[in-house]
Amino acid sequence: MISRLTFLRRQLPALCAGLALALGAATAHAQDAASFPNKPLRLVVPFAAGGGIDLLARITALKMGEILGQTVVVDNQGGGGGVVASRAVARAPADGYTLVFHSVSSAVVNAQVYSNLGYDPVAGFAPVSLVAQFPLVMIVNPAVPARDMKEFIGLLKAHPGKFSYGSSGVGSGIHLAGELFRTLAGVDIQHIPYKGTSAALTDLLGGRIEMLIDGVPPQVGNIAQGRVRPLAVTTRTRSAVLPNVPTMAEAGVPGYDIPFWVAIYAPAGTPRPVVEKLSAAVSKAVKDPATLARFKEAGTEGIGSTPEQLDAFWKEQLATYGKIARQANIKLDSQ
């Protein structure tokens, strides 16, 4: 039988070699972080140029670039509800030079409703920083005979299946937001999917559907002009740009809390020092007074967070949307 001392002597060279490799890797990562970035970065946006998410990404990228001393190029890769861009970033080199500007839809909803994505929507990414968030708002056509949420819920219960709400597509974040309302309010309202919220809004204004949940920023003008009637915002607190619109809980739907948010992620395996450097830059960029002012103009609250804070928030959101998807039996093949 080999004594413990003999065994340790035989294993010592291997242990030393392993320790040397680990120290070497740690040193290399530290050196990478010290020199990072030494070339332009690419911020992939999973949606087309010109939309609200794209605007937030460009505001953030511009200030990030100033802080990091390198250009941050915004690369719009729309398609598949965010799947195309997410797949590309998950497969990119884990060096910090390719990032994704995830929204709640691409970071959370897709993970819960799609199968066969071609990448792991959770393990494939390293959280960097929460950038911003804003409430959604439930709006109805002004012709709907309901002045507030209580009356609207009463109307739906009195006429089950008669009224409908639109979304940006089956399995979208707006669809799940509508399903959460249907479940918590205990109403029977029909879901009508569209190819984007613009088409749904057109039918809402035309009276072909009665209800829509959409972001506060794009609906502020319609609300001010009386083209739609707001019933509630979807977050725990009221919107600064719609202070007179109650929250869902205040309006009579307790337990409803669905913010829209955007955050930056890197591919999984990106060295921790690089992730921390990126996170610090994002937080500093988002909290800059000029950035906060531009976000506020867009009806958005700038946040900024550590990777750990984003990771904890992300897991909460995954649990929330996972429960909604299961209750509504929403499961789709990837696009």
Rank of each mutant, 00 (worst) to 15 (best):
A200N: 05
A200G: 12
L201H: 04
L201E: 06
L201A: 07
T202V: 10
T202G: 08
D203P: 13
D203T: 10
G206L: 09
G207N: 02
R208C: 12
I209T: 08
I209P: 03
M211Y: 03
L212H: 04
L212K: 11
D214Q: 14
V216I: 04
P217D: 11
P218R: 07
G221V: 04
G221I: 03
G221C: 00
N222T: 00
A224N: 06
A224T: 06
Q225C: 04
Q225F: 03
G226R: 12
G226P: 12
R227M: 13
R229W: 13
R229Y: 13
P230R: 09
L231E: 12
L231M: 11
A232C: 13
A232R: 01
A232S: 09
V233N: 07
T235D: 11
T235H: 07
R236E: 13
R236M: 10
S239G: 04
A240E: 09
V241E: 09
V241W: 14
P243F: 05
V245L: 02
V245I: 05
V245T: 03
P246L: 11
T247G: 06
T247K: 09
M248W: 04
M248P: 04
M248V: 01
A249Y: 04
E250W: 05
E250T: 02
A251Q: 10
A251L: 08
G252E: 14
G252K: 15
V253T: 14
P254F: 10
G255Q: 03
G255D: 02
D257M: 12
D257R: 03
